[in-house]
Design a protein around this nucleic acid. Sequence first.
DNA 1: GGGATTACGATACTATACGTTCCGTTCTTA
DNA 2: TAAGAACGGAACGTATAGTATCGTAATCCC
Lengths: 195, 195
Amino acid sequence: MSEAGTSAGRPRSEEAHQAILDATLELLAEVGFSALTVEGVAQRAGVGKATIYRRWAAKLPLVIEAFNQLPGLEEADTGNVVDDLKQMLQSYLQLFNSTPLATVLPSLAGERAHNTDLTALFDPVTKQRRQPLIRALERGVERGELPKDLDLDLAADLIVGPIAVRLFFTGRKVNPRIVGPIVDLALRGLANPRP
Amino acid sequence: MSEAGTSAGRPRSEEAHQAILDATLELLAEVGFSALTVEGVAQRAGVGKATIYRRWAAKLPLVIEAFNQLPGLEEADTGNVVDDLKQMLQSYLQLFNSTPLATVLPSLAGERAHNTDLTALFDPVTKQRRQPLIRALERGVERGELPKDLDLDLAADLIVGPIAVRLFFTGRKVNPRIVGPIVDLALRGLANPRP
DNA sequence: GGGATTACGATACTATACGTTCCGTTCTTA
DNA sequence: TAAGAACGGAACGTATAGTATCGTAATCCC
């Protein structure tokens, strides 16, 4: 295991490294996690299989690193909960429509159900991705836009859920147009402590 | 292709047929769609591979028939939208907690993203499963509990989404306790035309 | 009841595809 | 220029899907 700096000899190609990660993401989107093969990645990346095994011991750590290359949710802080949420969910959907995320995520989520190794990877990642949303809701509570006893996780699920369901069950692209109504509907329920 | 009735000779064993379907569901829950092998099903069911291939040409139609054996959502009609929805979602969760559905569904949904054959199967099934929910909402509209211009699909997603997200990403059994708050929150938003 | 017919479980077989390792070559450093 | 490490490609062993075949068991029809 020679890290850079110690060594004489030919250094590892950063170009190959990136090509492998890119190919992994592409194939992950095309065929899914379980049908992803190291051989396929090598061919797509134009490298030998040994070049992959020299860097990653197995498929899972490779997929982990590739998945973490996908951009995260950009936090919005406009001073208004509704605008924050709408803006963040718009970015969210643009992300899904412009990256392999829309196909990669369902595949990983589906695999998560029976692959405990993948579960260990995946759960922290999904929790991480919710954080900007949670923080926006917290700011709303602080500003008095939302009740103090709001269940933040439930609120986040109420907002993310409808979009996730459409992504998972009804094809690929989700129209960003639906973000407005979803946030309005959800917030109308969340903001009023009792009817 | 001899259907029953035409033939002399030993009839196909209905016991083996059912054992194959049961084994398919079990393995589907344990290892997922893509890792499901006909050989594995044969071993689990205690039948020869030929017995399976004699009935199903490939893995997909077998999975289809097995999946369709899982029970559907029981419709509730109490005369009140909120109660209808709460009752139906309770059944929904009990179904998930007592059948392999909680692991089978994410696996199929994940596979759906890159398997067009499975997509063709899966989309009508999911649409079908929403129908009782949609009808309950329609009754609510008719009774004046919900606005006439309600987007039924959006409303259904708003209610199912939060539960689905928890099932897909947290894996553990979902506490039926959350149904009440979810329906209350969602309906509070849906029922009031404008804040 | 007996013969014909079909399904049964089990096993052998072929082709394919995968993970992993090995090899001759290329690149970089000292 | 020599040494060392990574490179792409190819070779090797393993596993699995799918098919064919075996002897046996069950059912129908005469």
